[in-house]
Simulated assay, not measured.
Amino acid sequence: MRQIFLDTETTGLSAENGDRVIEIGCVELLHRKLTGNNLHFYLNPERDSHEDALRVHGITNEFLKDKPKFGEVVDQFLEYIEGAEVIIHNAPFDIGFLNKELELQGRPRFTTFVDGITDTLVMAKEMFPGKRNSLDSLCDRLEVDNSGRTLHGALLDAELLADVYINMTRGQDALLMEVESNDEQSRTTERVDLSSYQLPVIVATEQEMSQHDDVLTQLDKSSGGKTVWRNLQNSVA
């Protein structure tokens, strides 16, 4: 499975009001392994960045003057992302800007070219309800080293996002064992038959039950009382 972690930097917050993309960073993951086949562009937006945006990314107008325009790299960009699952933190923001850039080039919308889009912000809110779920917060929570992130940068943020995603989804892989031969072009995959195993049943302690109940209470608050597990408990009782 080919996954692309993508981030952008922009001149401001509103693509509809004329703000443009100034940086695109993409990191490729293949079968949950970083390949090093990354893509990175600085772009000339043909306009100045807002002061607030400049404080976030630090990419000056002078630096961008000799960089290519989006139309000059669009084919390379689309070829790179084609058919992949694209993973973005707060996807509506980046996709909105990329759609506008593609529209200015007379191209179809971003989703036309990819296999799907996963928003890690949505994932994080489901996993950590009621907590801060910015990229920096997730790095701290999941022990991903972000000490080099003094300013936002699209490629660095995409790399951090890949680490965060791998940590967030750890343990969710299929029970498959990949056996690689010495021939790098020859791979076989064997399924592990678990039917003959007697798996132990570990009963939760009182402390674990109490912690579980606290989590359900938080989910009740964030979902307006729609927690499925709580509803099942009530119906059984």
Rank of each mutant, 00 (worst) to 15 (best):
V56E: 01
T60R: 12
E62C: 10
E62A: 09
F63Q: 09
F63Y: 14
L64Q: 07
L64W: 06
D66W: 04
D66Y: 06
D66Q: 06
K69S: 13
G71T: 01
V73K: 02
V74I: 14
L78P: 03
E79H: 13
E79D: 13
Y80K: 05
Y80Q: 05
E82A: 12
E85Y: 13
V86Y: 01
I87T: 03
I88E: 03
A91W: 00
A91H: 00
A91P: 02
P92K: 03
F93I: 00
F93N: 00
E101Q: 04
L102R: 05
Q105R: 01
R107V: 00
R107G: 00
R107C: 00
P108S: 05
R109A: 08
R109G: 06
F110C: 00
T111C: 05
F113K: 03
F113H: 07
V114I: 08
D115G: 12
I117P: 03
I117H: 06
T120G: 11
T120V: 02
T120Y: 09
V122D: 15
A124D: 09
E126W: 10
M127H: 10
F128Q: 13
P129R: 07
P129L: 14
R132S: 14
N133C: 08
S134R: 08
S134N: 14
L135D: 07
L135G: 11
L138H: 08
L138G: 06
C139M: 05
D140T: 12
D140A: 08
L142S: 03
L142V: 03
E143N: 15
D145S: 02
N146Q: 08
S147Q: 04
L151H: 15
L151C: 08
H152L: 08
G153H: 07
A154I: 15
L155F: 10
L155E: 12
L156M: 08
D157T: 09
D157Y: 06
E159I: 15
E159G: 14
L161N: 04
V164C: 11
Y165S: 10
M168H: 07
G171Q: 09
Q172H: 15
A174I: 13
A174T: 10
L176T: 14
E178L: 08
E180T: 15
S181E: 15
S181G: 12
